[in-house]
Amino acid sequence: MLAALTGFGLSAAAGLNAFIPLLVVGLIARYSDLVRLPAEAGWLTDGRVLAGLAVLLAAEVVLDKVPVVDSVNDAVQTFVRPAAGGAVFAATDAAGKVDSSAFMRDHAWIGWGLGIAVALIVHAAKASVRPVANAGTMGAGAPVLSTVEDVASLVMSVLAVLAPVIGLVAAVLTGYAGFRLYRRRRRRRAATRSAPT
């Protein structure tokens, strides 16, 4: 159960930033015993892979803070974030801090599918909120929202590994906050359009 909660938290974090949860899991698995990855996910602890993920994370952090470029980046990340979510869910569900069931080890595709779905849902919410926020703030909101998303992804990733129940709660609260922000922005735009001129 804890491994599944870890997977849900990490895949939700991947929906915000694909590379943060991969790096968190890879670094923790490489330098501690908190996460024991199965052999097929051992690539996450390779130094070259971690260095490559760090470079991709740096590019993502910069690109996601530039208005308009962030929307193009989100379009590209539509494929990357769900894949990352599937990878971290499957890797941690197959091992994690506790031994998972033989069923989950034998049916890793379930973890992949769940991780892809969770990351895709979070990514879709993020990608739909960002253009509305950019339009409402004339682009000034992009760096602020991007920073909040990066911090949320990092906190959710660490909590998913160290305290899975809290990590899941943080993921749900982050999703709820994003949904509320999106609805508020849409109502303001609708009110602006319907206001008499």
Rank of each mutant, 00 (worst) to 15 (best):
P164Y: 04
T78Y: 13
V118G: 09
A160I: 03
V144T: 15
G167I: 00
V62A: 07
L159C: 11
S128P: 03
P82N: 04
L159F: 10
V129W: 14
V80Q: 09
H123A: 03
S101P: 01
S100Y: 09
D150R: 05
T45G: 10
N73I: 01
V62E: 13
A108P: 14
L56V: 14
L162V: 14
S71P: 14
A102N: 14
A41N: 01
F89M: 07
I121D: 04
P82C: 07
P82W: 05
V155E: 14
G111L: 12
S101M: 00
G52I: 06
F89T: 04
A83I: 11
E60C: 07
A108C: 11
Q77T: 00
S146T: 12
L114G: 13
V61W: 15
M138I: 11
L154R: 09
A140Y: 02
R81T: 06
P143W: 02
L63N: 15
A75C: 06
V66F: 03
V165A: 15
L53G: 06
W43D: 10
V132K: 05
D64R: 01
Q77F: 09
A140D: 02
D46S: 14
G113W: 13
T45W: 02
T45V: 12
A91T: 01
G47L: 02
L57S: 11
V66D: 04
V122D: 00
A117R: 03
T45D: 00
V72I: 13
I110R: 10
E60K: 07
A160V: 06
S157P: 15
H107A: 15
L159N: 04
E149H: 08
L162D: 06
S100Q: 07
G42R: 07
P67V: 05
A95E: 08
P67M: 06
L63H: 12
L120C: 11
F103Q: 07
A90Q: 06
L44T: 03
L168C: 15
V66Q: 05
A51P: 12
L145K: 10
R105G: 08
L53W: 10
I166D: 12
T92G: 04
V68S: 14
D74N: 07
G47T: 02
V80K: 13
R130S: 15
W112E: 04
A91R: 01
A133F: 06
A91H: 02
A51C: 09
M138A: 13
D99P: 05
Q77I: 01
H123W: 09
L154Q: 09
A94Q: 13
R105E: 08
N134R: 02
G141R: 02
T45R: 08
A58W: 12
K97Y: 11
T147G: 15
A108G: 08
V165P: 06
H123E: 10
D64T: 06
S101H: 01
E149Y: 07
L50F: 01
T147S: 14
F79Y: 04
V55E: 08
V118K: 02
A91V: 02
K126V: 04
S71K: 05
A127N: 13
W112A: 06
V72G: 14
Q77W: 05
T147P: 12
T137D: 09
K126T: 08
V76C: 05
S157L: 10
F103C: 12
T137N: 05
P164A: 03
A54R: 07
A160E: 01
W112L: 12
V49S: 03
R48W: 04
D99T: 04
T147H: 11
A119G: 12
